[in-house]
């Protein structure tokens, strides 16, 4: 069986996988990082989004072997080591941008990449379009859009905290 060596949330792992093993299966089943979810089988829902070398990727449509040598960040690796939430996580909490929490890890990872790739800032409509690859059945998205708008201000240094952005 092929061997994959990859760094996940700063820690290096070498794992034996089948050729057909998906990255999400490696994360969930081999590394027991169950924060990354699987919500569909057609690459529509985005619950499985992680970052590979800084880019958001659907880990349900990525073979584990494709991540050989890569650096992967999952939702478990987003907060600071002391547990301080990333501004995007904080914004989701502040704006009630999650209900059942199942789409949330993928939604947050997509949102972080969307904001990071758009330092010029995003309009509400651009945020909505940027969430094309992520489904949420609970919230109706409105609070997610508000949370991302608030988080981008903090991530781009325009506000000091989510609380400040909320005011």
């Amino acid at each position: 069986m092929p061997q994959v060596t990859l760094t996940v949330n700063g820690k290096t792992h070498t794992v034996e996988v089948e050729g057909r093993t998906l990255l999400v299966e490696l994360l969930r089943e081999k590394l027991r990082l169950t924060g990354t979810h699987v919500g569909c089988d057609t690459s529509q829902c985005g619950a499985c989004v992680v970052h590979i070398d800084g880019n958001s990727v659907k880990s349900c449509t990525t073979l584990a072997v494709m991540a050989d040598g890569a650096s992967v960040t999952t939702i478990e690796g987003l907060a600071a080591a002391d547990g301080t939430l990333h501004p995007m996580q904080e914004a989701f909490r502040e704006y009630h941008a999650l209900q059942c929490g199942f789409c949330t890890p993928g939604m947050v990872m997509s949102a972080v990449d969307l904001v990071a790739k758009n330092p010029q800032g995003l309009s509400e409509q651009e945020i909505r379009e940027g969430l094309e690859g992520n489904l949420c059945r609970c919230t109706g998205y409105h609070n997610i859009v508000k949370a991302i708008a608030a988080a981008q201000d903090v991530m781009h240094g325009k506000r000091t905290s989510i609380a400040a952005a909320a005011e």
Binding site: L33, T34, L85, F92, H96, F102
Partner: peptide, 18 residues
């Protein structure tokens, strides 16, 4: 603000498949 959110936002929810 919801008590359950930090768990869900940090990938520490425990769903059945977990």
């Amino acid at each position: 603000r919801r008590k359950e959110d930090v768990r869900f936002l940090s990938g520490r929810g425990q769903y059945t498949d977990d």
